[in-house]
Design a binder for these strands. Structure first.
Lengths: 273, 273
DNA sequence: CACAAAATTTTCTAAAAATGATAATTATAG
DNA sequence: CTATAATTATCATTTTTAGAAAATTTTGTG
């Protein structure tokens, strides 16, 4: 294994949500899991440790290191979607005025991952969509509203060819027309998700805003109110992000390299990965 | 540049807390910043993007990618200190019963970094010690209490030779004897930090627990109460972590490689980095 | 739509780095 | 102190990367 992959292969061992993943590894165990000699792994692990991506526990076990916390903060601070969204989530749970969890999610690696969440004070349940957890793409309001706004061609890659997914594609089309979706107990029994798309860039929404509430808290009037709330919060968020893009930060002087501003609509066939 | 460093050098460009860092970069700008040809950087960036550590924005700009959110969650879930500590922080702010921020911090890369924080509902201020932000090692209760519990030899590496740091070392010794520290406005004007060491492993504490409150909220009785609260929460936390280590998780069967359990007291001179 | 400029990938060979087996060293438990 | 595990060092071989230049694709603009 060459390049970055060599390091990522090691880090992936610590993904406890996949089979074979564990929270801590000895170097020899890593070597055997990856089918590589221990001397090679000792070298790789040493490099990862020095960079803070791994760290050594009290015994000869290694686990993920604090560098991830540092980089996650940089992303939290700098990423327009996360930065802007976090404020909106706080407003959203306050305006909802009942126990709930608000969250933002996005496409990631052929799955949908929550990138920010906020619980109303006193909320006594959790959503399975928690920050940093990849979730299936075809279940749950959070995921479906994203799928519903992807171009048809991309759906083929994500869920399979048109012929094999007629039913789902019909459902998605309906969701897209409605502009929002409410699902009950699709992910967590007893919980309802109310989701709207965040349409900030050209090729459909690749992110969504969701409010998760107890199913029994949702009489018809509340439901209508919350749908409106989520939909308008998502629109507002999208607008703020577009605005931030249009008005770039105070120009740096060292910017010798000019940038183009454009709207993506890539149809490239150059790379197949 | 070889090995992992080649990738880390790129990621470091996105550290907006250092001069030269920016939230987004074009590949050509990266190349010029790193003094390498663009074709090389295009290759490196492509690898980082594929792994999710970078991502391409709408124009030809790249920024940090969502993989960091995923790995940060794995750490949040699996790391004993973070996992156990988060629950304690929630209890702590509740028991404090006033607007406050509770946080845990640890040594990282010659600095002190907050690895978890929790604000009491209705808290209307922020601590500079925020999750993922490296902070200076010699200022603030959070940092000092950690330094105070490091072995003297290590201090030489962290703050300089004994002769040059007599004053600071005296102060640290006093803090260590007291078992806690209260500092006012050392980091954030108007805020007071109350910190205790988390002594979970052998060579002194490398982590601390802090409660940050408004200076004016701190009459003598409250101060005594909160000190006691923080100190006992830190002890409890340390105990829970030691307990978790002593009682390992349900034995996996595939564990062909035996582990040793030991207490670190390394005096190695093998590597000089 | 065509043209120009920017962005990105491809190609290819010298130079550099990684691999992996083995030996040497260091740390630790008992 | 000793046996054993953990880790690093060595080094010849194989593999990968760097870097320049060319080719290709994408995109903005007229």
């Amino acid at each position: 294994m060459a390049g970055l992959g060599r390091y990522v292969d090691v880090l992936r061992l610590f993904d406890t949500t996949t089979s074979g993943g564990a929270e801590s590894w000895s170097v020899v165990a890593m070597a055997s899991a990856l089918g590589a000699p221990a001397s090679t792994l000792y070298r790789t692990v040493r490099e990862l440790t020095k960079a803070g991506f791994l760290e050594q526990a009290v015994d000869a076990q290694y686990s993920l290191g604090p560098a991830f916390i540092e980089y996650e903060r940089l992303l939290r601070i700098n990423d327009p979607l996360v930065r802007t969204g976090r404020g909106i989530l706080v407003d959203l749970v306050r305006q909802a005025g009942l126990p709930c969890v608000a969250l933002m999610a996005r496409l990631y690696n052929g799955e949908v991952m929550c990138i920010a969440d906020e619980a109303a004070p006193g909320t006594d349940f959790h959503s399975s969509y928690e920050r940093g957890r990849p979730m299936p793409m075809t279940r749950g309001a959070t995921s479906k509203i994203i799928l519903a706004h992807r171009p048809s061609r991309e759906l083929t890659k994500l869920i399979g060819p048109r012929a094999a997914t007629v039913q789902l594609r019909k459902e998605l089309q309906a969701i897209r027309r409605a502009g929002h979706i409410v699902t009950a107990s699709e992910i967590d029994p007893g919980l309802t998700g109310i989701a709207a798309p965040i349409i900030a860039a050209d090729p459909g929404a690749s992110a969504s805003l969701t409010l998760v509430v107890r199913e029994e808290a949702l009489d018809e009037a509340t439901r209508r109110r919350l749908v409106l709330l989520v939909v308008s919060a998502a629109s507002l968020l999208a607008e703020e992000i577009r605005g931030a893009q249009a008005a770039p930060p105070p120009a740096e002087e060292e910017k010798k390299v000019p940038h183009r501003v454009q709207v993506t609509s890539s149809k490239s066939k150059r790379r197949k990965d």
